Amino acid sequence: MEIELGIQNVARPVNVSSDQSREDVSKVITEALEADKTIDLTDDKGRRILIPAKALGYAIVGSETRHAVGFGAL
């Protein structure tokens, strides 16, 4: 799943690809914002992404659907 995070005072968004479900990612972000703690996500390569909740401007949690790559008949 693709996740786009907008960080305050940073011109470009942080894009993360994760194996976590949409519900898990949303829960982590929501709980961190409510408790004013660090958002702790893991990408699909096992790296941890830590973002202070105060610094988050927005989060776009993308589709879990894998799209086919290549040419195909429509």
Rank of each mutant, 00 (worst) to 15 (best):
D24W: 03
V69P: 08
A59S: 12
D43I: 00
A32H: 13
G72K: 13
S63M: 06
T38V: 04
H67C: 09
Q20V: 00
A32G: 12
R12F: 09
E4R: 03
H67G: 11
E2V: 06
D19H: 04
D19G: 05
D19S: 11
G46I: 13
N15L: 14
V28S: 08
D19F: 05
L74C: 02
N15Q: 11
P13Q: 06
A32T: 10
I51S: 01
A55C: 05
A68K: 08
P52S: 15
R12S: 12
V16T: 06
V61E: 06
G46K: 11
R12P: 01
D40E: 06
P13F: 01
P13V: 01
K37I: 03
V16A: 00
N15K: 14
A32L: 04
F71E: 08
I51H: 00
S63F: 07
V16I: 14
E4N: 05
Q8T: 05
D44W: 07
E64S: 10
M1S: 10
Q20A: 11
G6H: 04
D44R: 08
T38M: 09
L50Q: 08
V61L: 10
A68L: 14
S21N: 07
D24E: 12
S17P: 00
Q20C: 02
I7P: 01
A68W: 04
Q8D: 08
E34N: 07
L50R: 05
A32N: 05
V69H: 10
G6D: 10
L50S: 08
Y58S: 01
E64Q: 15
D40K: 15
V61T: 10
A32I: 11
R47K: 13
T65P: 00
L50W: 09
V14T: 10
I49Y: 03
E23T: 12
L33P: 04
S63I: 01
R47L: 02
A73K: 13
A35I: 13
R22P: 01
A68P: 14
K37L: 05
R22I: 09
R66Q: 15
